[in-house]
């Protein structure tokens, strides 16, 4: 078996994944980056998007994350996601529903903080819709 790196994906609700992987591609805020074993230490913010986990050279799992932080050091890659769900669970109904909720929030937002939060939610929805296609 090829060399692996410990990949950990945690959301506030639970530890989603903790297993050795061959490569993982993370949607960093400055562009996607692939993490292989012995990657240089890196800390990056993560934009809403899809993580690809590679096994034997092909994508074995795809997980949608709604932004967060990613830390890479030699042996582990830890991703703190605000929200994470396997891509198959992202359906067009879910996207439509969340888009409605986010747009309502934007309409009702009064303070700048509320508005920013609603806009952030909308960005997540847009990323979800993009991931769907």
């Amino acid at each position: 078996m090829a060399e692996t790196i410990q990949f950990e994906l945690v959301s506030p609700a639970r530890l989603v994944k903790s297993e050795p992987v061959e490569m993982v591609v993370v949607p960093g805020s400055e562009g996607n980056f692939g993490v292989l074993p012995r990657h240089a230490p890196l800390l990056s913010t993560v934009r809403p998007g899809v993580i690809d986990i590679y096994t034997a050279g092909v994508i074995s799992e795809r997980i949608f994350v709604a932004g967060g932080f990613c830390e890479v050091n030699g042996e582990t890659c830890t991703l703190l996601a605000e929200e994470a769900m396997p891509l198959p669970e992202v359906t067009s109904e879910l996207v439509a529903e969340r888009r409605r909720a986010a747009e309502d929030r934007l309409q009702e937002a009064e303070t700048p903080a509320e508005k920013a939060a609603a806009e952030a939610a909308l960005t997540v929805v847009n990323a979800m819709a993009a991931a769907l296609n």
């Binding site: 506030p12 960093g28 805020s29 400055e30 980056f33 240089a40 230490p41 890196l42 800390l43 990056s44 913010t45 932080f69 830390e71 050091n73 030699g74």
Partner: peptide
């Protein structure tokens, strides 16, 4: 530290800290 490893930061050290620190307090 993590063996004195120096991290690369994306987008920037301050950017990440500014984001991460308040979130840590909340968390």
């Amino acid at each position: 530290g993590a063996g004195g490893a120096l991290y690369d930061y994306e987008p920037s050290e301050e950017g990440i800290l500014k984001d991460l620190l308040p979130r840590n307090v909340a968390m």
